[in-house]
Write a protein that binds this DNA or RNA. Structure first.
Lengths: 109, 109
DNA sequence: ATATATATATGTGTTATACCTATAGAGGTG
DNA sequence: CACCTCTATAGGTATAACACATATATATAT
């Protein structure tokens, strides 16, 4: 499925109210992303795009030690989009399950 | 999920031992493809590529009325690839289900 | 000094595919 | 007979997603 990273990021942000990109990258593995899939470039680009689309907001955090972080927060619009994603994903699960049903019928046991 | 049309075509061909593209297009709806998704251009291009990859073979059928048809058949290699797809799809179902589990935990009832 | 971890960002080539268009045979209708 | 529609295959192209590589800068450990 395409753009699956987006709903994962939205859900991670809902779980923790705020987080920066590097932190989100660490947690994407919970959704089955491996090192290649959770490519930093892809994550940061997704976050920037999500901000353009209005599903998240961000601000710089220069308070902590280390390089500046961009802190992301879910918007109400983002929560709506997350719900839409959930519907979409449920639909895909049903679709894939239907395939497997047919497959198992063709290749029993 | 990407290239989902391929396992569907392979499974359809396993079900009917042989079929031409236009016929397969009609049956793709069984797998949740709508008119846009089951775009003829995409179907035929997929079939040609699958032949290049050795998962199907084809020959022209000029016997029947109407324009000539290209009849496709599943190869043993194609059946192997279909089994690989089934594994891949099962994995994706688990992955998406895991997302939904987390989602439902975040938004109960 | 230098290597590593933290943190963000851009450049780019490949791939999948949606949408559009082209071609052509066969049958039906005014 | 002209025209339309259905059957059937195919290619052209623009967009989009993404993997992989690279650039940047700060802080810490050796």
């Amino acid at each position: 499925m395409e753009r699956f990273m987006q709903p994962c990021l939205l859900l991670l942000l809902h779980e923790r109210t705020a987080a920066h990109g590097y932190e989100l990258i660490q947690h994407l593995q919970e959704f089955g992303f491996n090192e290649n899939d959770a490519d930093p470039g892809t994550v940061y680009r997704n976050l920037r795009r999500m901000e353009e689309e209005g599903t998240v907001t961000s601000h710089w955090d220069t308070g902590k030690a280390g390089p500046a972080r961009r802190i992301y927060q879910l918007t109400p619009e983002g929560e709506k989009v997350l719900h839409q994603w959930a519907g979409h994903i449920s639909h895909n699960i049903r679709r894939l399950s239907k395939f497997m049903e047919k497959y198992n019928h063709n290749f029993p046991r």
